[in-house]
């Protein structure tokens, strides 16, 4: 069953630059989708339509059959978005306060908030740092806090925009392990990257965008061969005739 249905989606910016052109796409519940493309291909623009942060010029985005614009609060609760720059996503003065920000906005009872935040922090391994200032966290910990802030809202889909940017090897492995664990727990995952190497081994679908259009879409092992034609670097293993291995091994 499809959790996201996008039909005829187009978007252009105020300066006339076209962000997306006639996107038609469905995403199955529980799938792990990698969205790739060169800078300016329209990846982030597409993601921002999934929870109504951007309004389409034409076309519709449906979540479980309901258009996003019909109920923005439902859309934002269903689709949790983790932005590229964790520092400007963290709004709380402590780790706990930040994770509680979303549930508090949803007007949940205090007991439910406490329970949900504790579970989210536990899942990303930050429960011992609940009282720390986010400013004192490392890059990887900040990214994990951004994920916890979204998890506390109990979304059905988690969208991550460049989740591995500016992270060291250990940081990448930590975030990747979180994403894989969430997928195994049944959450639909959409990861937007321009470097396929780190995440491709876990994906079950690869979509490549170019100039606001879907250029290629299908199983990762097939689509990855076309990647370089659309400005996305071919993983070294594939270039050498092998397959991309998981970074978690």
């Amino acid at each position: 069953m499809n959790i996201i249905e996008i039909s005829g989606l187009s978007h252009s910016y105020a300066d006339g630059h076209i962000g997306l052109q006639q996107i038609n796409l469905t995403i199955a519940r529980g799938s792990f989708v990698v969205l790739a493309g060169a800078n300016g291909a329209g990846k982030s623009t597409l993601l921002k339509h999934l929870n109504g942060l951007l309004k389409p010029l034409a076309g519709t985005v449906r979540l479980n059959g309901v258009p996003v614009e019909d109920d923005l609060l439902r859309a934002r609760r269903m689709v949790g978005m983790v932005f590229q720059d964790a520092d400007s996503q963290i709004v709380g003065e402590t780790v706990y306060d930040d994770a509680a920000f979303g549930p508090e906005n949803l007007n949940w009872p205090r007991e439910k908030i406490t329970e949900s935040v504790a579970a989210a922090l536990d899942l990303v391994g930050l429960e011992a740092m609940a009282e720390r200032s986010p400013h004192l966290l490392s890059g990887g910990e900040k990214r994990r806090l951004a994920i916890a802030g979204v998890l506390a809202m109990q979304p059905e889909v988690i969208v991550l925009d460049e989740p591995f940017a500016n992270l060291d090897y250990d940081g990448v492995r930590q975030i990747l392990a979180q994403i894989v664990a969430l997928h195994k727990a049944g959450t639909t995952i959409i990861v937007c990257v321009h470097d396929l190497e780190k995440v491709l081994a876990h994906a079950d679908r690869l979509i490549i965008l170019q100039e606001g259009r879907i250029a290629a879409d299908g199983p990762p092992h097939q689509v990855v061969l076309e990647a370089e034609a659309y400005g996305v670097r071919l993983p070294a293993a594939v270039r050498l005739g092998g397959v991309v291995e998981s970074w978690l091994r």
């Binding site: 942060l53 978005m81 996503q89 709004v91 007007n107």
Partner: peptide, 23 residues
């Protein structure tokens, strides 16, 4: 730029006028 990103992030996490208040 940070303020702009922050506004998007707060919107994505359902920031509005009616939230859970402190007990």
């Amino acid at each position: 730029v940070t303020a702009d990103r922050l506004a998007s992030a707060m919107e994505a996490r359902c920031y509005g006028l009616h939230g859970t208040t402190h007990q």
